[in-house]
């Protein structure tokens, strides 16, 4: 694979509008790009013989609400070239209003469930995904729990469940949650 400087030139030439930068932390190269062109970038990385990243190891997202970042959400793709044993990370930045980016399902079928998970937990939509439903939380759930503005203890989940009263002796137990 190309070293960092050459990689920067190649990617910048191909994606002049959406390329942001390439960072290197602890020997892990990360390509930063705007979300709308991520499918084209990943297709280049998969099919171009100079890169040949044939395996998509992981898709996840990070909510950068409390950190300095180009946009609020970053969808992170971990790619692997199994022949040369090299890894690269692609970070696709998505804005807060209507977060959406193209699905990479046409390239790897593993994107199906992983994008559903990101959609469920972060509320980022993947256009072109064949079956974008919630996967972890119930279908009628309203929130996206891994967003940073969602509290750890949840919102209203406790009070939505009925409290079962128990009978102790001849008395019904007092409802402690009300007091």
């Amino acid at each position: 694979m190309l070293p960092k400087d050459q990689l920067t030139v190649v990617i910048k030439e191909k994606f002049p509008d959406s390329f942001l930068e390439i960072t290197d932390f602890r020997d892990m190269l990360t390509i930063h790009i705007r979300g709308e062109q991520v499918l084209d970038l990943l297709r280049t990385l998969k099919t171009d013989p100079r890169f040949a990243f044939n395996f998509l190891a992981d898709i996840t997202a990070v909510d950068h609400l409390e950190m300095d970042a180009p946009a609020r959400f970053a969808v992170v793709y971990h790619l692997l070239n199994q022949h040369e044993v090299r890894r690269i990370v692609v970070r696709a930045w998505v804005d807060e209003e209507h977060p959406s980016l193209p699905s990479v399902y046409p390239l790897w079928k593993t994107a199906d469930w992983q994008e559903r998970e990101v959609y469920d937990l972060f509320g980022i939509e993947f256009t072109g995904h064949p079956d974008l439903r919630r996967i972890m939380t119930p279908d009628d759930f309203q929130h996206h729990p891994l967003r940073k503005d969602y509290p750890l203890q949840g919102r209203g989940e406790r009070s939505n469940f009925p409290v079962v009263k128990r009978r102790i002796g001849s008395k019904w137990q007092e409802d402690k949650s009300v007091q």
């Binding site: 992981d58 996840t60 990070v62 909510d63 992170v76 971990h78 593993t110 199906d112 469930w113 992983q114």
Partner: peptide, 13 residues
Amino acid sequence: RVRTRPPSLINYS
């Protein structure tokens, strides 16, 4: 943020 790459999930898909 701490993400697990879960082999069970991806194999089950």
